[in-house]
Design a protein around this nucleic acid. Structure first.
Lengths: 352, 352
DNA sequence: TTTAGCACTCGTCGGTGTTGAGTGCTAAAG
DNA sequence: CTTTAGCACTCAACACCGACGAGTGCTAAA
């Protein structure tokens, strides 16, 4: 049994996947030759397809139906056979324009990149908020809103900013609050987020000449705010677009898939685990069963990473039916990735 | 033709709606008598139902099927017939606990109230962010993040806080930025948001001894931030739960409905328009065609308002199939509304 | 090795008959 | 005048049937 397919088999596999992606219907030998004007007869194709099935690249929904790609079939398709188009100018322009218009802030930038992907590909899209364990605390500010309430602003390296409303003792005034914040900031300057503990925050804050009774609550809230700044968040867009595809014609199946996607934590967890693998290639593809999430068996993920400086910060990608137009999705994702990294770099560098 | 139904007709209408809500299947005369142990025969019910149909309260999907409530039927059901249950203790407890845990900040509070509603009722829920044209600007702060970037924090009356990252000229230092912010704050102190114009902001800011070239960009960003603080936002949750109901068994219909809901702007606009009506009653119900949004013809909205102090600030509610369990939804919504208003009041008053 | 030919498979589609829950109507009983 | 038993009628849902056709595998000849 050959480990690699001969050229004709590759050619046929590619044709089958292409056709199935286009039509969503099992493709037969006869329609294949006519559609692609192959120089051989349908009988030959039949023999080849039978072999491809035996090798696990194709499947038959039932005897006397055409063939459908298996996970393995899709896999070799995306790894070896597919031709990635370059993005049409008009689509490229849209992406560039939208990203440029949203570059005031990282979160908004990523969110809009995600929406863009969904809009352009007509699949669902998702993005993970930037999270980098090597992130440093750069600043922490506390802003008095009214007696008893303050806004804690945490600035991480790479210019990522998060804030959070907290309750503080009513007796604290604005000046004291700022004093505490600077004490913490000084004490933790440059520490990585993982290294920051409640003890460390407390130690830093104790340099302030204030009674513990007032301090403790504030220090605790500061600690929580810092930790929360690094929380993994998910932005998802266009999941209802999936209902347009025939693989979701059955509402029950559709519901299972959408319910799974709605549990953002699950998807986030899954994607963040896969962080390390395949770092060299620009994108990562998970097909069907390769996704270990119940309910997404006939879906595929295509994701890529975006960077802060030169460290990977998060993922952004597309979720669609297994039978998705990988070529189109990948060209979009690559372009978005490039532009996203570009804008983030500019944002960090302060270029307008 | 009588303007009001006699007691027996009311009784029958109520029974039909109750049954249809429970089973999702057209209810016939025979099953009605057996289910409710009515003291009359099915023939009598048939006659009554025929009359109710003639009067427009019931509809027949086809001859020789049972009856289904019409919009008018649902309307009188919710207005006159339905018995609103009081919320079971355990559900009440959950709501109280979750809201209490989220009371650091208004936006989070409302968001969690919305999720709660969806979770408790198993329908979709949505909430509009607080927006009150009589809102005053209370504070505006600008926080230097790094040269060229600043965080603008806008505090409205009632303690609503919004912030936004902006670009500023690189030459500005932290002190200057604070100076500008206080100038704006002083100049606009107590103005309602509607009255604040770019001109007003500029006028307030010009008191600072800085060259126009530096000022203008900052003032513009401040203006945008203030305006944006009052933007209408929508939080939606659980829209995929709708797929569980038989009215959405047809994917095409389901898609239309979900697509409409996904256009958050549309729903927001629709709900905010209905703001004034029915202020006296605690909740507002829109049934089927009463909703003027294409795609939601067999859905219903049940919404209520929440308040900042004593002015209406926003809406929160549930979207479900027309055949929704109004009694359950209303008891949930009322309870959430009460607790939400309570927590908002405490939040404003600084009670913990 | 390729391919024409052929028998076979099986899902789809239209037609047909049955079932059953529902109706409206009529005529008798209360 | 209202109620109700009885009956004929309607119609969606379901199962069954046969024809159709796109597809297959196999065989034997080119």
């Amino acid at each position: 049994m050959p480990l690699t397919l001969d050229d004709r088999k590759k050619m046929i596999l590619k044709a089958v996947v292409d056709d199935y992606i286009a039509t969503a219907e099992p493709v037969g030998s006869k329609s294949l030759v006519s559609r692609h004007q192959l120089p051989v007869s349908s009988a030959t194709i039949r023999n080849e397809m039978a072999e491809l099935e035996e090798l696990g690249y194709l499947e038959q929904p039932h005897t006397s139906a055409g063939r459908v790609p298996s996970d393995k079939g899709y896999r070799t398709y995306v790894d070896e056979l597919m031709e990635v188009e370059t993005l049409p100018d008009d689509e490229a322009r849209i992406i560039q324009d939208v990203l440029r218009a949203n570059m005031a802030e990282v979160t908004g930038l990523i969110r809009s990149a995600s929406s863009l992907l969904s809009e352009q590909t007509q699949y669902a899209s998702l993005a993970l908020s930037p999270k980098c364990c090597k992130n440093h605390l750069q600043q922490i500010k506390m802003l008095m809103i009214e007696p008893g309430r303050a806004l804690v602003v945490v600035v991480l390296s790479a210019g990522l900013v998060k804030d959070r409303m907290v309750r503080i003792p009513e007796m604290l005034d604005s000046a004291q609050l700022m004093q505490i914040a600077s004490a913490i900031e000084e004490g933790l300057q440059g520490m990585t987020l993982d290294d920051i503990t409640l003890v460390a925050v407390s130690a830093a804050g104790k340099h302030t000449p204030l009674p513990d009774s007032l301090l403790n609550q504030v220090l605790y809230e500061a600690y929580v705010s810092i930790k929360q700044a690094d929380n993994l968040e998910v932005y998802m867009a266009g999941s209802n677009k999936l209902l347009a595809y025939p693989e979701f014609a059955d509402v029950a199946r559709a519901k299972i898939a959408l319910d799974t996607l709605a549990k953002e934590g699950m998807v986030a967890g899954y994607l963040s685990e896969t962080r390390e693998e395949a770092d060299d290639s620009t994108y990562m593809i998970r097909i069907g069963q390769e996704i270990a999430l119940a309910g997404l068996e006939n879906c595929s993920f295509v994701t890529t990473t975006y960077k802060f400086g030169d460290t990977v910060a998060g993922r952004i990608g597309v979720i669609g039916p297994r039978r998705m137009s990988y070529a189109k999705v990948i060209s979009n994702i690559n372009f978005v990735r490039m532009n996203l990294n570009d804008q983030i770099r500019r944002l960090g560098a302060g270029i307008d």
